[in-house]
Design a protein around this nucleic acid. Structure first.
Lengths: 225, 225
DNA sequence: CACCAAGTAGAATGATGATTCACATGAGGG
DNA sequence: CCCTCATGTGAATCATCATTCTACTTGGTG
């Protein structure tokens, strides 16, 4: 009898997951408001009524989705972070993990960035609040890494939160750029090195001629894009 | 007669502007979908019918709004850029201008970032297309600056588009962070220096002890936030 | 003063889409 | 084979707006 109940619960969970996957695709393609419950139901091959068996409302679907993904992502970061010692390694872990994660969860990325600008716009109070907290926690984590790095003398003295946000923005933009062009193309993960370098050393050319003229104007040094 | 007509036209323009200002505030507070025409009308102290005298649709209001602001912003950048010679100066101009502009146009910022993730989510095809172009042009401008800077040997050899996007993201994040906390507080513009430095030199501590231990652990070097 | 044009108003219309509910279906179990 | 509960169904309900339309105001003109 209990056995039975358990299986039922498990199956219910499958269906929920299944539905979430369909919903994710739709939401990422058309946004929260332009996606209708009927569409979600059809995409997951359920009747509307059934959908409401699993989720109280459209909003709840959206939130479950985001929370699950965020949690997964956070867990991944934590795991990778555990193995890192220096600030550099930690930041590298963050960068790599984020790029990898969103390379694999392209659809989710659009939702993630669009909600960045404020959950209030789509969801009402209480629920959105929780998602927002997760978002913040993520950022705070990086802020702490930077803070510690400074204390240890590994990083220059910058405003930690500012640097953390800057990194966050850099990453998001980069992922976005990649999504724009690279529908099918190359992998995102390799950019981690470039980004790490950029975040640590900036764009300045230390080679010596900083701003001033030099012998040869060094034409065609730029990548050919 | 012509005089008359001219004045009428001008007055109409005023009213349009007036309406746009109200709409901007609402859109920035509640987003496109959660803002209703009635609200917009009330906020601007018009009747709904009157609103439709000025704008064909809700979408048109939104778009006019965005286009106007984007154009204003672009013009400002162009102007500042004209006075800049080196890549550093140019990038500094971009950074400063953006921070200043959004410090003054806080409301618009929320709209700006939220639409970053794709106009398709809110608007339909043709119009959104035009806004998107503007957005791209903006980014391309910076890409070109970077490309040129590399060719001139002022900047390290990075992928120009990547760097441009990274900068864009850094700026947006920073502005966002500022908006979060600093409801009333300090100015945003001063952060330009920090950001410029960050973008040029990164967070690495060149002071010598990169990662390794040194004499004193240098505790409490971090800002007290 | 009557009349017209231009502008303003806000109730009525129509669509859309989330949510609900009365019914159908089918898997145990007697 | 029939009954019953647990689920699944999708048509009907209900609300919410964008948009339209008809009637009202106003200010100028003959």
């Amino acid at each position: 009898m209990n056995q039975r109940t358990l299986r039922k619960t498990r199956e219910l969970e499958w269906r929920r997951q299944d539905l979430l996957v369909s919903a994710e695709r739709l939401f990422s393609e058309k946004g929260f408001f332009k996606t209708s419950m009927v569409e979600i139901a059809e995409a997951a091959e359920f009747a509307i009524g059934t959908v409401y068996q699993f989720f109280k409302s459209k909003e709840e679907i959206y939130i479950s989705l985001i929370e699950a993904k965020m949690e997964e992502f956070a867990a991944l970061i934590d795991e990778r972070l555990a193995a890192a010692a220096s600030s550099r390694e930690k930041l590298e872990a963050v960068i790599r993990t984020k790029l990898e994660y969103f390379e694999r969860n392209r659809n989710f990325f659009r939702i993630y960035v669009s909600e960045w600008s404020g959950f209030e716009w789509t969801m009402k109070s209480a629920f959105g609040e929780r998602c927002w907290k997760r978002y913040q926690t993520q950022l705070d984590l990086v802020t702490d890494i930077v803070r510690l790095g400074i204390r240890r003398g590994e990083l220059r003295m910058v405003e930690p939160a500012e640097a953390a946000y800057a990194l966050h923005g850099m990453l998001n933009s980069t992922i976005y750029l990649w999504m724009l062009q690279a529908k099918p193309s190359g992998s995102l993960a390799p950019k981690a090195d470039t980004l790490l370098h950029l975040f640590f050393h900036g764009v300045d050319n230390h080679a010596g001629n900083g701003g001033a003229k030099r012998g040869r104007p060094n034409r065609r040094a730029a990548p050919s894009t």
